[in-house]
Write a protein that binds this DNA or RNA. Structure first.
Lengths: 339, 339
DNA sequence: CTGAAAGCGCTTACAG
DNA sequence: CTGAAAGCGCTTACAG
């Protein structure tokens, strides 16, 4: 029967019997732990590949008090624009995990419900946890601390007890800003998202540092936060035009997209009349005409790095408390000076 | 030590010893299977809640040859616009699974790589699988059939051997189209996505059926498929205006958003000059002014339904081969007739 | 109604 | 270098 087909699996005992050795030997050949003769090992290894033996990770897990699963905590409340970030992280995480025979269990939390995470921990279904974003007040993080579960966080936090992996937002934003300042641009504006998101603060910091380093003064009045609604952007863009801003920096592509469409409607030309740069580079802007200068992060790599860090922790290795990943600066038409 | 804290768990033997009964009895009290005295059962049940005993699902799984995991197959190659759909499905799935103490393992596949799915199956880490979309040529689906793993598919397919759960795209598109035809609108256009996606075909079918039922003829020339690039939309919109189309139906919000922005740029007023309706209702359009008439599906419910169906299958229950979920029609300003 | 025992498929001291 | 045995934490015929 078909059902039976799927269930029928060859076990370590089958292999042992077929080869006339003990289960112990087979186990050792597979795990590579313990002393074992080269020929015996090869004999076993050959047999299992030929017969498509696959170890039962559930059983192995029970014996070793491990699950070979990690949990990925994903927000059930998200902004549309954050989705590609999470998706790419997830891809990287599951690839890195799979490479070491770990699987990724998803656990969705909302601001007032982390029961899913609690369940997965109480049921001992995972060996460790990856937090996919950091918040100022982070309930899932507190839960993990309290339950003493190994975990890492994607994102940054001031809490030095948290192992964190993040894109180098400060460095990236600083570099892009510097580049444009060096072109001679002086009157700039910054449009940012939620000011309570740590990432918003980091990006702002990079923007500031660029001015500092060149001994230029930054105009606080042209820095806008919590830019989330369309009509707000509309209003701000009018402001910017009134003030004859030369270049507007957008903290994410959602903001940038709306800025662009506002400018287009008003028949303001990019880059002739105003320059535009984004601190992010998603599919959303990729095909825009003119091309939009932006930063680019590899979030799949970010996920991989986070996963590998966690797996190393579980392995008892020492890990660095904060890992920052690189970025690319993509210069396109939207910030070109007239020649 | 902290590490130890997390590992230390009370087992069924601890409970048995403390209560002076056998492990068998404790197991029976918890599972509810097998004969057991009411007082004994209550005694055990009380003890375990008081002492926060949590069964070890790994051990239970090994004993029952189950994993209490299901895999969710997610495409690693996706359109930005599909993300909210997957995210909402995932939310529903993980909620429904959690309610029955199942967990969800993600497995990302691309057109030329389903190694992740293969691994999770070969390693026997899951009891069943949910496919999150159906394709015309579906490699993951073939793999599941071949490996004889229980599975369900979110989406539709002609393959009657596949248990499928889907939104009622045909019914929904038919209803919205009918509603507008009944308002007296006659010259319509349809802008659709990839014609190889089954969902595209379903939506077109509903559109057609509406005309049929009212004995109206539908103009094939104003039906566009594979509308994916911005410049294509631009071109089509000009066509539509030339032909004095009264109402344009968009198959998804991405298309719709671009149509709207095209019209805006050309200073064509909605709904005075042309009416617009979308067969989807995402965050993307939610706050548009004017409000856009659209269909609305509950993809979280869809995920729940899919998960519950799979869990029922695993339980040996009979399940219906195709489940269609309901929808809402949201009438807004974009399709209002002048009074 | 209750329990002793074997078993799920692996790992790992301990002996040899 | 190899193996017999106990154990991971549960379930489930089989007896009583």
């Amino acid at each position: 029967m078909s059902e039976a087909e799927y269930k029928k699996k060859i076990t370590i005992s089958d292999v042992a019997d077929a080869l006339g050795v003990s289960k112990t030997t087979v186990s050792r050949a597979i795990s590579g732990k313990g002393r074992i003769g080269t020929d015996t090992r090869l004999k076993v290894l050959n047999y299992i590949t030929e017969h498509h033996y696959k170890p039962n990770f559930i059983a192995r897990g029970l014996a070793q008090s491990k699950t070979f699963n990690i949990a990925l905590v994903l927000p059930g409340d998200y902004y549309l624009t954050e989705l590609p970030f999470f998706q790419n992280c997830m891809l990287g995480i599951s690839q890195a995990a799979g490479k070491k025979d770990y699987d990724v269990i998803i656990s969705m939390v909302t601001p007032n419900d982390n029961s899913q995470l609690e369940r997965v921990i109480n049921n001992h279904k995972v060996d460790g946890v990856i937090l996919s974003r950091t918040l100022v007040q982070d309930a899932p993080l507190e839960l993990l601390k309290q339950k003493n579960v190994p975990y890492v966080a994607i994102g940054s936090t001031e809490d030095r007890t948290v192992v964190q992996i993040d894109n180098d937002h400060v460095g990236a934003c600083k570099e892009l800003t510097s580049l444009l300042l060096m072109q001679g641009i002086r009157k700039t504006a910054l449009l940012g998202g939620n000011r309570n998101h740590i990432v918003t603060q980091k990006r702002f910091q990079g923007y500031q540092e660029a001015f500092h380093e060149m001994n230029l003064s930054m105009d606080e009045a042209t820095v806008y936060f919590d830019v989330e609604e369309t009509y707000v952007i509309e209003k701000i863009v009018e402001d910017l035009l009134d003030q004859r801003i030369e270049c507007v920096f957008c903290m994410d592509d959602y903001i940038c997209m709306h800025v662009i469409s506002c400018l287009r409607r008003k028949n303001v030309k990019i880059p002739q009349d105003i320059k535009v740069a984004s601190f992010y580079n998603s599919q959303m802007l990729k095909n825009n005409i003119p091309g939009i200068t932006s930063l680019q992060f590899n979030n799949c790599e970010l996920g991989m790095a986070a996963c590998n860090t966690l797996l190393n922790m579980l392995n008892g290795e020492m890990v660095t408390q904060r890992t920052l990943l690189g970025y690319d600066v993509i210069l396109k038409e939207s910030t070109q000076m007239k020649h």
